[in-house]
């Protein structure tokens, strides 16, 4: 019998660190990991020892539109009969339908769903809970809440945050950590407590999420221009991610979640000239992107998705 755990949390909350950490908890077992992060390029695969990683790209686990992809990935994983499967949900996904998705699988006797661990980004929660519709849904679907990055907020803020979350979910354990350092026993003892019937029934799409793919003229954007652009875009969106090739042939990988912006020089892989931007209603990214082609000749085109 395979135990399935779902790790949720908004963009940048520390889900990947948590998955790596939790896989260590099960180090003597056969582990499978399903990750699903928009635009991710397999960064964590090598960290999962003796594990099996399946990535679902360009989709969102538990967004109904990609449930088929998740179903396929899970089927392939279950065929390998692991002891544990860790599923990392997309930071923008609403996990409310997980029970329904799992229940209607024909092989639902092969596994037991142990529950949902929801990572909370301590410094950013108050900002995102009112603007990103999925955040309260992620909290409401959790069996274990983990306040992560607690070292980055004051004691007073942490107290308020803990009180707010306990009020919202008095029925689930609440842990406080830094670097997603979740005690193994908290997860090993996890039990799905959400009442049957409360799940999925009213699952709905989130049309307030927006995405755009910016394509640049190959080899025209200087590193300084890129940094300035990403700084502005990141402040107006949930996430900016991609790779850009500069005039001298060097490549920069960009990964920004809100104000946490990471630039790294890429020394291998295909040259690319794209940035993916994800944002929601109330953020200024759309307005910014509309005027971008005029202001920046290096922009070849912008494709919008929804």
């Amino acid at each position: 019998m395979t135990s399935i755990y779902l790790i949720t949390g908004f963009l940048g909350a520390g889900k990947t660190t948590a998955v790596n950490r939790l896989s260590a908890c099960f180090k003597d077992r056969k582990i499978g990991v399903i990750v699903n992060e928009y635009g991710r390029t397999g960064v964590d695969s090598e960290n999962i020892l003796s594990g099996q990683v399946t990535e679902i790209t360009n989709g969102s686990i538990f967004c109904a539109c990609r449930a088929d992809q998740f179903d396929d990935a899970l089927g392939r994983m279950l065929a390998l009969t692991p002891d544990v499967i860790l599923v990392e949900a997309s930071g923008l996904s609403n996990p409310a339908s997980i029970d329904a998705v799992l229940r209607r699988r024909p092989d639902n006797e092969m596994f037991i769903f142990r529950g949902v661990v929801c990572l909370i980004d301590a410094p950013r929660l108050h900002k995102v809970i009112d603007t990103a519709l999925v955040v309260p849904k992620q909290i409401d679907a959790a069996d274990l809440l983990v306040i992560n990055k607690a070292d980055l907020v004051s004691k007073e803020d942490l107290k308020t945050l803990t009180a707010d979350l306990s009020r919202r979910r008095p029925d689930v354990p609440l842990l406080t950590t830094a670097f997603a350092d979740i005690p193994c026993e908290a997860v090993c003892n996890l039990k799905r407590i959400r009442p049957a019937g409360a799940d999925g029934a009213a699952h709905s799409q989130d049309l307030t999420l927006r995405k755009a793919l910016i394509t640049f003229q190959p080899g025209t954007l200087e590193p300084t221009e890129l940094k300035a652009l990403v700084a502005v875009l990141a402040a107006a969106s949930w996430r900016v991610k991609g790779r850009v090739t500069h005039p001298d042939g060097r490549m920069t990988d960009v990964d920004a979640v809100g104000e946490q912006i990471r630039f790294s020089e890429a020394d291998e892989g295909r040259p690319q000239n794209h940035l993916i931007v994800l944002w929601g209603t109330g953020q200024a990214a759309a307005r910014m992107l509309r005027s971008l082609p005029e202001q920046m000749p290096a922009v070849l085109r912008i494709d919008y998705g929804s």
């Binding site: 109904a64 539109c65 990609r66 339908s97 329904a100 209607r104 999925g200 029934a201 009213a202 699952h203 709905s204 799409q205 989130d206 049309l207 307030t208 927006r210 209603t281 109330g282 200024a284 759309a286 307005r287 509309r290 919008y304 998705g305 929804s306």
Partner: peptide
Amino acid sequence: PLFDENDPEDRVVPCDCTIPDANQGRIPL
């Protein structure tokens, strides 16, 4: 959901992948 009061000109058409499936919302009921 397709109206942003800060940016009324942000006119978005949802992708076909959002068309409700038969398990969504109150459709099964």
